[in-house]
Write a protein that binds this DNA or RNA. Structure first.
Lengths: 242, 242
DNA sequence: GTCTATAGCATGATAGAC
DNA sequence: GTCTATCATGCTATAGAC
């Protein structure tokens, strides 16, 4: 069972402050930051407000005036934290990358059987997107509008997660636990399912579908797909796959 | 095997003109349309150009000036076909709904076993999105920015497709061919996989992944998930699903 | 250091010339 | 019936007042 969703939220909450500091330093080449605690607080306020306002419509539709109003910061103050509107994107992306990479890696590092690693990774991914919903949604929907370098980085991050899952599957295949199916394609389809959880919230919310139910269902489907059974069955399954 | 992708493209191409006429009539309450053939040609030009320009960035980022330039129509002429920019969305949506609903229903209407229907429906869906790529991508990414009524309709269309797949699965379950798993959730995950084909083109193109390969893989995964096997195996599979 | 005012520009929509 | 000129608006970004 590992962590509950609640424990997860706490973990993310604690990382927030700390990460605010890291991100601020990364971006502070251009920033005249004075009193650290205030600066970190403002930075988090800016990130949160941007995510909320952007996701309500879209990033381009959010004006800096709206953002100034929502955060309580003046227009000139905003420009002390961000160079221009595009810089806001890179700020937000850094913030989410750090947060989710750290947590995902931390959760699977002590697990050693591929099947169990796979289960935990699936669960952690869904929990992450549940907790950082705004960020995941923003990152998915706005990637297409980003500048070249930012877009490259976002896609690289997606491929990085695929790589992580792929390695687990390959390990399982070497041990004879998983079938010899294309790992890369399997993982792409898995990721499509994982992403659906935060992309189609209107649908799942409407159906009052529980996070745990979703996780279990995806895990089960994935395992029916991957787990090799007795040799005799292997034939049967090969027939079905043509 | 049913249809090849090429036959599919021809089918869609032929429907284009005809549908142009239908859509033009639907929207012509407000249009002073004169010479039909020219009007239909212009309408199709407008739809195609809008999809191309929008998908390059996003709908909001496309200016009507860009569209005027791309189509060769003057600004005033554009406003003869569309009331305002939002009306463009509803025009495009009608066009795609008609096209894909007609073809999807037509392809499965003569098949009678659930398993075969499911296979054809999956195949047709991927082929449709491959042929009408621009429309599917636009429709998915811009739904969130649409006006209330338009958004409702787009979501209803997604639920409609789920309903279609759901009915096939329920029929299979009644016949004892498919397992007794939640059909709605199964279908949601299936649809996530189907959508990934047009949402992540950059990834699949980069890997030079073939349409047929993708279809087969999704079909196989879905069937491992749904097909009930001998009673003895049922136990095994229930264990895996917890 | 904070906030208001405004410069400079691009857009959607239209009116009116050819 | 086409096309060009123009209007009002809303935006980013900054300069300059307090």
């Amino acid at each position: 069972m590992s962590m509950t969703l609640q424990a997860f939220r706490r973990l993310v909450y604690l990382s927030k402050q700390e990460l605010g500091r890291v991100v601020l330093n990364q971006h502070s080449e251009r920033t005249r930051l004075n009193k650290e605690p205030l600066a970190v607080r403002n930075l988090i306020k800016i990130v949160d407000a941007t995510l909320a306002l952007s996701n309500a419509k879209n990033f381009q539709a959010m004006s800096l005036r709206d953002l100034s109003l929502e955060t309580g910061l003046g227009m000139s103050e905003l420009h002390a934290y961000i160079r221009d509107k595009d810089d806001l994107i890179s700020l937000i992306q850094s913030y989410g990358y750090l947060m989710s990479a750290r947590i995902l890696l931390d959760q699977i590092k002590d697990i050693h059987t591929p099947l169990e690693q796979l289960r935990i990774a699936v669960r952690t991914h869904v929990f992450l997107s549940e907790t950082l919903l705004d960020w995941f949604y923003f990152s998915y929907m706005e990637t297409r509008n980003m500048a070249a370098e930012e877009k490259r980085q976002a896609r690289q991050a997606e491929l990085g997660i695929e790589e992580l899952f792929c390695n687990i599957i390959r390990a399982g295949q070497r041990q004879g636990v998983f079938r010899e199916l294309d790992p890369q394609l399997s993982v792409s389809l898995l990721e499509a399912m994982l992403q659906d959880w935060y992309l189609k919230r209107w649908k799942y919310r409407q159906r009052q579908l529980d996070v745990e139910t979703y996780v279990s269902f995806v895990q089960a489907m994935l395992e029916r797909h991957l787990l090799s059974e007795q040799e005799s069955e292997n034939h049967e399954n090969n027939r079905l796959a043509q």
